[in-house]
Design a protein around this nucleic acid. Structure first.
Length: 275
DNA sequence: ACACGTGTTATGCG
DNA sequence: TCGCATAACACGTG
């Protein structure tokens, strides 16, 4: 469930630890993760180059490469994580620096097992270290020159007027609009539920019927939730997230939470407060 | 064993 | 053609 905050954490890891290291080899043999590239295509484009910058918009990140090389796009999908290991020093096998830990909410969540086949993509550096994409579910994606322009503005940076204009239109349910990456980029299922709860808005409200005040409030709560998730380590730390579930209650008013599929995703909200 | 979750993309419909 | 809805994808988890 990497959403915007988790991807930003991963980007920071790349920026901090993977730039300016020469790529010696690339394992791009996972044809699903690297689609539509054929095996070897990404390797041929990157060997000998360096990553020189790491960017992000919404849930998509990409790196510029040296000598006017192609951009390397990485999407974490639903279970992807970026792991970067330092240069090997005297045959020492270094600990991996990790970005975006989103492994569920409980302390004892996730076994931590790392099967080798879950490493879907690897950049091996000349210094002996590597950048890897670790992805159990295999819905992540690596590709050259990704189409970033298809995404809407980043959810954490979109301005007030543009937010009003882009979100406050159409007849689809508000939550579906928020999940549409072409409208605003970076909001996933959990972040959407959190922000709607914080804003006292029903996920089912037709997005075009929101007032300007409601849209402004929604944007404020969105920025707040993103900052908070970045600080606390993931969207699962949101206030209402632990209260999504059968028999759970709204942490503000105690009303039993309601469940429905909205925008194709399981949605939980407080039927009393979110209208 | 089997349903569920989940971001993206493809497909379908009015 | 556009906006919206739904299915498909992969596969670990409960």
């Amino acid at each position: 469930m990497p959403e915007l905050p988790e991807v930003e954490s991963a980007r920071l890891v790349v920026e901090r630890s993977a730039l300016r290291r020469t790529i010696a080899d690339v394992d791009d043999n996972d044809t699903y993760e690297c689609r539509p590239h054929a095996p070897g295509e990404i390797r041929d484009a990157l060997v000998g180059r360096q990553l020189v910058d790491a960017h992000r918009r919404g849930k998509s990140m990409w790196c510029e490469t040296s000598d006017d090389g192609p951009r390397l796009g990485i999407h974490l999908g639903m279970s992807g994580r970026i792991l970067v290991s330092p240069p090997t020093r005297d045959d020492e096998d270094g600990e991996e620096d990790e970005g975006g830990d989103y492994q569920g909410s409980g302390p004892a969540r996730g076994s931590g097992t790392r099967k080798p086949e879950w490493y879907r993509f690897t950049l091996r550096f000349e210094d002996g270290g590597a950048l890897r994409l670790f992805d159990k579910r295999r819905l992540g994606r690596v590709r050259l020159d990704p189409d970033i322009e298809a995404l809407g503005p980043d959810a954490g940076e979109i301005g007030r007027d543009e937010f009003r204009e882009r979100v406050g239109r159409g007849t689809a349910p508000l939550k579906a609009r928020l999940l549409d990456q072409g409208t605003v980029a970076g909001i996933g299922n959990l972040l959407a539920d959190e922000v709607l709860w914080q804003s006292h808005l029903s996920p089912q409200r037709p997005s075009g019927e929101l007032t300007t005040d409601e849209l402004d409030e929604l944007r404020r709560e969105l920025r707040k939730a993103i900052r908070s998730a970045l600080r606390k380590g993931g969207v699962h730390t949101g206030e209402v997230i632990a209260h999504r579930g059968t028999g759970r209650h709204c942490p503000r008013c105690g009303t039993e939470m309601t469940r429905a599929t909205v925008g194709g995703r399981t949605t939980w909200w407080c039927p009393e407060e979110q209208v």
